[in-house]
Design a protein around this nucleic acid. Structure first.
Lengths: 218, 218, 218, 218
DNA sequence: CATGAATGAGAGTTCATTCAT
DNA sequence: GATGAATGAACTCTCATTCAT
């Protein structure tokens, strides 16, 4: 009572991608392991070969989304020869296009991060190894939160730099960045691939709303 | 947010207020009827004297949050003698302060609206009255969504008016409003009452990021 | 979807009694909540109205068995006017008859006590109240273990007293009592109500094996 | 108890030994095939190269423990030139020391024998070979139970002999032996290697409690 | 021989919901 | 109105077991 139907073995990455999709559509609590498993032609039980539990899977999804975004944005921040404005424009563009191209990841970032906060201790009659694994999870989760903060800091750094050099009008940097990211993340909520505007176009628009505040003549 | 009831009878309003608090803290799926009931010193069973079911309660909470916000913002939109700019400033201020003062409502607006979409029809061959009640729920839910769109249109109308009259630089109105509301709603996610800035101060900041784009000289 | 078939409401005590029976027959791990529930015409879910979880139910069963036995034996230990020998005879008799009359409790005591040692932390996304309840369980469990030690001490005290007064031949009191209780508890394992000897008769026999060692002339 | 294998091939015996240890520590139901496999640096799947299933492994463990004990005790029973008393003393000593030295085996004997009784036939419409294998298991299990009875009879025989020859005071032989074995087996429950007394010392004590009853002057 | 991947079966547990009191 | 008791449905997670490699 135990073999694969036909297709090839499924790997971690595929599961994460599918899970991101299901999670963003149904929400963390509403999406069941069975749902996610079905999305990769597995049974729920099989998921547990790849992820210790649902929380670990969620964490993996969020990590992937975050790394994906950071990997696209970080290089821009340290690109020599570009002004702060040019870099910020590019970063916003990457962020929004990323969210729009990958609504799964984007929406998950918006809606599911706080689900992580409710992480649970190990289930039944815990063996020492389980407790240890739980510690590991907590560590990984905290690392994720730090990484998310790091992401926000990428934007802060560029804005800060522009302000300091006089290229940008002075703003309250943390608040400015929160407003910007709020607008960007929100795209994941309302964007429809078949909508009037492409991700690129949306990025251009939104950029044009935020930059004037930075570029105002004093 | 949940004040202790007169130790006896509880009314609808009190339940909604307490529920808003619980829902925003724990999330729709995670919060149980028992949790919500406990917040007003009732048992779960008793909640069913006031609301047909959990979905209806959620809807009531969201409706209340939305009406609360609309009631504060709508009057501004039609205030004679104020420029589009002045009205938009006031509206943003009301919105953000509302979200910040009332995190329950704010977070609920962001995170829980889509929980409504998952509402499931009565299981199995239900009694006619149940099906009818479900129809009623769907109707009410659609009304809510229309009301929410109406809320967005309040902003669109004012921006549109400013653009049309030449007071505002032309922008893609729907996108501009989405970006603005994204930034505003996001406040409900990160705002902490004991943080560095008050809701008022945050509103002032965010306003100052969005208006330059509208007021740019052509 | 939720009423009782016909008979009267079930109370805690009835559940404990039925559970003792099921647990002793099937063992803690093998017996399912469904099994136990069926024994009182309930569904598994209903058991959770009366006991927080399976461990709590087991603890209740063991506590009941232990209290039952202690209540019968303790009075004997402090009965004025009886010699140590007379009291020990009466205690053994009560113990064995108790185990034999109530095989459920007896066998549970032998086989299931160690299941308690593996107690588990609360299950999913624990609310503070759950963690607190778990602490309470641990406390209660420790109290049970202390109570069990107290039970053993009842026997030790009487033997000790006899030894000290010279009525009994000196023995290693703790070991003697362990041997005695081992023999007694074991009765719960092999006793069959339809066997050759009654509980009383078995008690008489076993008593006659242990007392000569205490009454030997020096 | 589980020494690390030669880092490569593992044989049946080693698995049984390690399994005895794991089973006695965690209990039959609680110990998983994975646990047992880990104790010999294998995966669960690999265990199935050595044992048809978990029941078969348990049976092997119990058989080994029983044979181990029988092999040490049987020779004593037929030793020419020793009185019944001398033989019984030696047998008790071997039994208790065996249980104490080898808590794995001892506890398994006490706690796990009845797990065999719960063995379940192959689920659903099984292949003929499975049914046949199950028959084989039943046969082997019954053989084990008979062997266990034979073990008890070793003690009965010596006591009986002593009674018949007048060397021992008449007792109810089956009950006497049950009491004796109950006390002895119980040692496996409470014995701690770092305790006050060695297995030898405990054996001496317990022997001294049971023999007076047999040696009483009539 | 060994194993990674997969799975059916089922366990404990939770929860929205109902109904008699 | 309020509630205690009960339950169906569903969910997460575990585990013995199988099979292709």
């Amino acid at each position: 009572m135990a073999r694969k139907p036909a297709d090839q073995s499924v790997n971690r990455e595929e599961i994460i991608t599918a899970a991101a999709d299901v999670l963003s559509r149904r929400g963390y609590e509403t999406a069941t392991m069975k749902d996610i498993a079905a999305a990769v032609n597995l049974t729920a039980a099989s998921l547990y070969h790849h992820f210790r539990n649902k929380d670990a899977l969620l964490l993996a999804v969020l990590e992937m989304g975050l790394e994906f975004t950071i990997n696209r944005i970080q290089p821009i921040t340290c690109q020599r020869g570009l002004s702060a404005e040019e870099r910020l424009r590019a970063m916003i563009r990457e962020h929004i296009v990323g969210v729009a191209d990958n609504p799964a990841v984007g929406a998950a970032m918006v809606f599911e991060i706080h689900a992580l906060s409710n992480a649970k201790p190990p289930t039944r009659r815990a063996k020492p190894e389980d407790l240890q694994a739980f510690e590991a999870f907590l560590t990984q989760r905290d690392a994720f939160f730090r990484r998310r903060d790091a992401f926000e800091h990428l934007f802060r750094a560029v804005v800060q730099e522009g302000v300091r050099s006089g290229e940008f009008h002075p703003v309250d940097v943390p608040i400015f960045v929160k407003a910007l990211l709020g607008a960007n993340n929100w795209v994941g909520v309302w964007y429809r691939p078949d909508g009037r505007l492409s991700g690129e176009a949306i990025a251009t628009e939104i950029t044009s709303y935020f930059l004037p505040a930075l570029l105002m003549r004093k």
